[in-house]
Amino acid sequence: MIQAKNVSLTYADGTVALRDVSLNIRPGEFVYIVGPSGSGKTSLLKLLMGIEFPSAGSLYVMDQPIVKREAGRIRKLRRSIGPVFQEFRLIQGRTALENVLMGMRFLNIPNRQMVNSAKEALTKVGLGHKASVMVEKLSFGEAQRVAIARAVARKPALILADEPTGNLDYDNAINIMDLLYTLKDKNTTVLVTTHATHLIGNYHDTSLIHVEQGKISVEHRGEQK
């Protein structure tokens, strides 16, 4: 699913966000990414979405090389990814339902199936009753859950969620983590960055990526609980 070999990311201003990252993530893996603020978690997800490109090393996502001149193919690759952005990136002036639909309209899903899938996803994040509310009227936590519904509803092969529980209370956070974890059964690969380390112990057969000043270490946590 994801192969990284000695990947580094240096931003234009010279900031080194990631150094010498090597990774191998299999389909259906559930991966936590943890580390202090500014350590490079978001930067890693940006690389995987082709928003940034490795300054050194090689990176493949779903067998697609992440290189700048492959812009067209990267755009296509993104259709198989369900992104949850740290800043949500909802589209203003639309309802919650329309926001979820806008992640699917170009995916060749039959209309009825698309609407059903969107409503189902909103219900799963606990927002079935807010489907027709404009997103700018939602609370932070509600907006975040719409962003999660948008990522989940399109049934992607890979979910890249950047602190999806950052604005949620304990119960909602558990609900979202449960939702993401169930996707594992459908062989969906999930990468979740989080500061909520207390939730991590709840789930078995996961991987943990520690990011510290751009360096990573990977830990597999098998059957525990």
Binding site: I51, R75, R78, R79, S80, P83, R89, F106
Partner: peptide, 15 residues
């Protein structure tokens, strides 16, 4: 901003 989001979601230019 909206266009950027759609691109990040993988929407084709035609759409």
């Amino acid at each position: 901003e909206q266009i950027r989001t759609l691109m990040l979601l993988g929407a084709p230019d035609g759409f």
